[in-house]
Each structure stands twice: as C-alpha cells, then as structure tokens.
Design a protein around this nucleic acid. Structure first.
Lengths: 348, 348
DNA sequence: ACTTAGCACTCTCCCCCTGGGAGTGCTAAC
DNA sequence: GTTAGCACTCCCAGGGGGAGAGTGCTAAGT
C-alpha cells in the first residue's frame, strides 16, 4: 500500500483523537485536541490537520458539524504506531504465569485457565484455539468395546490431549483383539506426529508395499477409521462473551446478534484465528478484513503460543473497535508467552 | 396454595389475554378480547372480568389507561391449563428421533445432536445436561504415563462417556505397572455404577478390612485419585444463545447481560436443571422461583430423559416468558423421549 | 344479579417546533 | 504556516398539543 507518511504533528493529532475517542466514545472536536496536545497549537490549526487527515481517510465525521472519529484506517495507523513488546512489567508477567499454570496439569486444563485469565484481565471476550491434533505427537490409543459392533477409540497425544470417537466395526472383535491392535499401533507409531501417522496408515492401506500379518492389517484399518480424520479441526474455547453486552459502546458493534452467532459458531472463529497465525508478536485486526462477516465492527487482538514445529495455537481477545489497544496487546502477548512456557513444561 | 378457582369465563379471558400478549407483546385491551372470545360478550363485561383477574394477581397494567398483561402467576395459570402430552404427531416424533440419532453413536455425540435439534426447532436457547458420571456404570479405565510423574487417567462409562484427568504420582510407575493397575480396577469394578466404585474404593482405602497385594493397593490408590471426585458435576451443553438477541421482546427479558452470564456460567444452569429433575412429563418454570438470579424474566421448559435408575439428565429450552408454551412443551417432551430411546439403544 | 351502553377521564406516544450548543470551514490578518 | 474571527450547519433536549387507546364508573336493560 502506498500510504503517505504522516508528519509528526499529524500523527500526534491522529493518536490523540483515537485515544480520546476510545475513552469517551464521542466524536472529538478540534478544541479538545488543541487542549490535549503537548505542543500548544490553536484549534484552527488542529482543524486544518484534521481536514487533511479526513481527506487521507483516517478520520470521518458523523455529520457536518460534529467532531471527528477514527475510521478503520485511523485505528490501523494508531495501532501500528504502538510499541509492540515490553508493555508489561516482569512482575505482572510472572504473576500471570502462576495464575495460568500453578502446577503441571494437562493441556485442556491449561487452555481453559488461559482462556479464563485472559477473559478476566481483558474484560472482554477471550478466545483460545487449541493446537490441532495433527501437530502433536501420537502417544497412545485405546480401543474399548461397546455394545453391538461399536468400539470407542481414544487417542492420546503427547501433550495429553484426548480425542475420542465411536466407530462401528463390520465384524466383531474381542476386547483382547482390540488391545492387541492398540498395542501394535502404539508400538509402531508412537512419537510421530498424528499427521505423519495418518499419512503412513493411508500408504499402508492403499499400497500393498509391505507384507502385513492379518492382525496388523486389522489394526491398521482400525487406526484408519479412528485416528485419521478431522485432526485439523481445533477446538476453540471462548469465555466472557457476556461482556460484550456490558461494553459501553454496544451500539457501535453493529448487529450484536450476528456477532454472537459468529462466536457461537466456533468453526468461523477458528478459521479467523488460523488465518492470523504466525510465530511472532501480537497482531491486531480491525473491522472485517480477514474476519468473518458479522464482525465488521469488532477488533481482534491475537498472538500465537507454542512453537511452529510443535503443538501451537492462538489466543485472542475480541472486542469493539473502541478497545484499549496498548493494554490489550500487552496482555495478549504476555498470555501467549506464559502459555508457551507452560506448554513446554507439559511436553518436556 | 389456596388459589381460588377461576370460573370458565374468567379462565377463557385469561387464556386469551396470555395468548394475545405472547403474540403481540403489547398490553391487551378489553375490546380485543371481546372480539377474540368465542362467546359474544361486550368489552364492558370483559373489563369487569379483567378487573377481577387483576385483583387476583393474574394480570397487571403498565399504567392506568393501558391494556392488561399477564403476571407470572397469570402465565403459570395459563400453562397449567395446557394439555401436557400428545401435542406432537407421531410422524413428527419419529422424524425427530431420526434427526437426533440416525445411527448408533456415542453419548456425547447424541447429546450434542439433541441440543442442536432442540435449538433449531425451538428457535430459542437449548440446554442439555449430560447425565452425571456417578449414575453410569464403570466400564473401563486407562492410565497413560506422561512426562514427569504425571499420569493421564481416562475413565470410560458404560454409555461411552469419557472423562480424563491428569494426576501426579508421588513415586514413578512404569507403563506396565499402570496397565496392570488399570486391568485390576476394570476386573474388579466393571459394571458397577461409578458412585458405588467410589464408595468401595474409599472403604478399601480407609478400612484395612481386606488383605491386598501391594500392586492392588497401588491400583486402588490410583483409582481413588482418578476415578473419584467431581462425578456429580454434569456437563451442560448450550446452543442458540444468540437467539435471545433476536427475540422480538428483548427488552422484557430484563438485563440481558446477566442472562448471558448465567448461560455462560454452566454450573448455575446445571443447578437449575438439577433442581427441576423428575421422571415425568415436561415442566415449566416462569420467572425466578427456582431459577438463578438474572433469569427473573425468563421461562424454562424442561423434561428429563433417560431412566432414574440409570444415566439420566435434562433437556430444556430457555426463553423469554413470552414464549409459545404449547409448542415448546410438546417439543421438549418429544425430544426427551427421543433421547431416552436413543440412550437405551446405546447402552443395550 | 348480571350485562351492557355511554361517557368522562387518564395516560402514552408522536409530531412539531424552537433555542442552545458544539463544531466546522473560510477568510483575512499576523 | 498559524491563528483569530465569524457565519453557518446540524444535532439534541425540552416543551406543547392533539390523537388514540383503554380504563372505571354510572345508569339503564334483561
């Protein structure tokens, strides 16, 4: 994008307007800004700058004789000007870590806590996408015979995630046979990522490359129906959605109903988070861009946790565009770090 | 309660007012009712009846010269006058059953589907409380060694529910030892309800009544920390909460924020449902009575599924007091039956 | 004794108007 | 390039005023 650089004063005016607007929720006039700015300028000068900023698309007016409020682009500019890291004291960060993972637990619990703490501290909607199973190593599988020809397959990942699925066998198997099959699969595949396991199993099933014992073949087939599939759907935790209703600027969020629908439809959220995934620092999305329809008037502050070559996911805060960016970015960043640390301890 | 019986005409007037109010959401005047009633009466007569109904606490006026609207008591009376069963055609019921459980699956999936279908058809918030684990029979347990001294305990109930918990051992155990312990526990306790198992384990731990091998003692101890505990917390599924925002009478629901908080705080919902539990037909709660604070302006239509001597839980619809009771009651009742049927097939 | 027509009364809601205030853009002077 | 001055625009809150819906009461009818 060929966005013209703003000179220092214009940027200062824009920042002040954004901050003021976030604070009060009302269009900001030239007088207010002139008073708030460090350097002393007259309202008239500010007006000139504002007119310029409006021409450039950073500001808009609800009507002719009202103050200005930031556009999406205005927010964007403001946010990119914010310092990214180190906004949180070491003490606070440590504190956070102990709140999230006071002692070694399992991954689900860890993520629940992460989500809870994030919702609590951000006072907004916290969203946590669990690592998709395909990224984590296969640790264990267990088959439990149910009534009929049904079998409950329970897959455990290295990090202690558990996935279960009921499958129907074409012909009955005894619990002994099931145990053998499970043991075989564990022996053969433990330690590899579930994505790899899936791949290997597919190969073994189609290519007749290898000579397999009968029971091995059976085990592989069982693994195919139970381990394989929807590994990429990562669970999404949400907490604090009721906060949206108490936000001082509910009206600005557009149709609340659709916002809640998106939140409820976890898949959409998961996609939005996935799209944002990357290894470094916190990210901010304002308005629709990569967000699903319905969130046009929301902002999403997200950061990834974990390591790209291991299990990793995303934590995020969803709120109105009028949110306290500096604070929230620092928080999300710190939470992501804390979660990463806890995750490492879990899989160590 | 010594509620005076209403004579036929008073009851008819009340019913008409309630139905009209549910339809339009506006206070109903005597003229409307006079027109709507089967027997032809004049508005003046209706006014007399209405004044009487107001004195008895069934109706209220928002202000002197507006129509009447039902009070909680008015709704209550209206609902008790509704037929309870057989409001849904057999065809619809069958249809429902096939939507919920097209083929044998596992319990969680069954309940998710139940919740989904209920939300879909009621166009309101569907709430499903899963059977607490303590009611279901113990089928299987599996211990998976994690890093450190942590062990992941996975408990499977007869119906195929899975519960996991990470526990920390005071001293390390090999996977072999863990497998032995699990096998021992299964051998010894499979088939009993988890409540019983918990009890037995407690006995064995405290009373030195029985001579136990070392590894048995170890297994029991492991079982105590992993099987025992929070069995009574039943998971609660919720779907469709965004519907509340689209309800034509959002305002009447009081503070939406607190309503959503209660919904988000599943424990509160679980308690409310548990309080209502009983074996027979659908139940309706209007306003606070046994509902948690915040739901003063909501109605809850619930019914139990399953059998009291086996796994059982509750399905419910949460909505504004102004909901279509007849339809909703029939639906909830039918869903509960369908779920019961599916559950029986699952554990057969 | 119950029902009903008639009537005065009450209260809300909506529309219109108006004045005040906040903020703007422009122009001209610094 | 900055600023004071000024006319202009537009929203918003507050104050009638009239229409409409619905009531309670009274008195007459069955």
């Amino acid at each position: 994008m060929s966005v013209p650089e703003l000179n220092a004063r214009s940027a200062a005016v824009l920042d002040t307007i954004v901050e003021r607007y976030i604070l009060t929720g009302e269009p900001v006039g030239s007088g207010t800004i002139a008073r708030l700015l460090d350097e002393s300028v007259s309202p008239a000068t500010v007006r000139n700058v504002m007119a310029e900023l409006e021409r450039l698309g950073y500001l808009e007016q609800p009507h002719t004789s009202a103050g200005r409020m930031p556009t999406r682009r205005g927010y964007r500019q403001y946010v990119t000007g914010l310092p990214v890291r180190g906004l949180m004291s070491d003490d606070d960060a440590r504190n956070l870590r102990s709140q999230i993972a006071p002692d070694p637990i399992e991954m689900d619990e860890l993520l629940r806590r992460t989500c809870h703490v994030l919702a609590d501290l951000s006072e907004l909607v916290a969203v946590v996408a669990a690592p998709p199973l395909s990224d984590t190593a296969f640790r264990h599988v267990d088959f439990v015979a149910l009534e009929g020809n049904r079998v409950l397959a329970i897959v455990v990942s290295r990090a202690g995630q558990v996935k279960k699925r009921a499958v129907v066998l074409s012909e009955p198997m005894t619990q002994d046979q099931l145990d053998q099959a499970a043991a075989y699969l564990v022996r053969r595949f433990a330690g590899r990522s579930l994505r790899e396991v899936t791949l290997r199993i597919q190969e073994l099933l189609t290519g007749a490359g290898e000579r397999l014992e009968v029971f091995e073949r059976q085990a592989i087939a069982l693994g195919a129906t139970s381990i394989t599939g929807d590994l990429d759907e990562s669970e999404v935790l949400v907490e604090g959605s009721s906060r949206l209703l108490a936000a001082p600027d509910v009206e600005t969020m557009g149709d609340l109903r659709t916002v809640f629908e998106v939140i409820e439809e976890r898949r959409l959220l998961a996609l939005a988070l996935r799209a944002e995934e990357s290894s470094d620092g916190p990210r901010v999305v304002i308005g629709c861009e990569p967000l699903p329809t319905g969130l046009e008037h929301c902002a999403l502050v997200s950061a990834s946790y974990g390591h790209l070559d291991g299990p990793h996911g995303t934590v995020a805060v969803l709120g109105p565009t009028r949110l306290q960016y500096a604070r929230t970015i620092a928080l999300v960043d710190a939470i992501a770090s804390a979660t990463t640390a806890a995750l490492v301890r879990l899989t160590r």
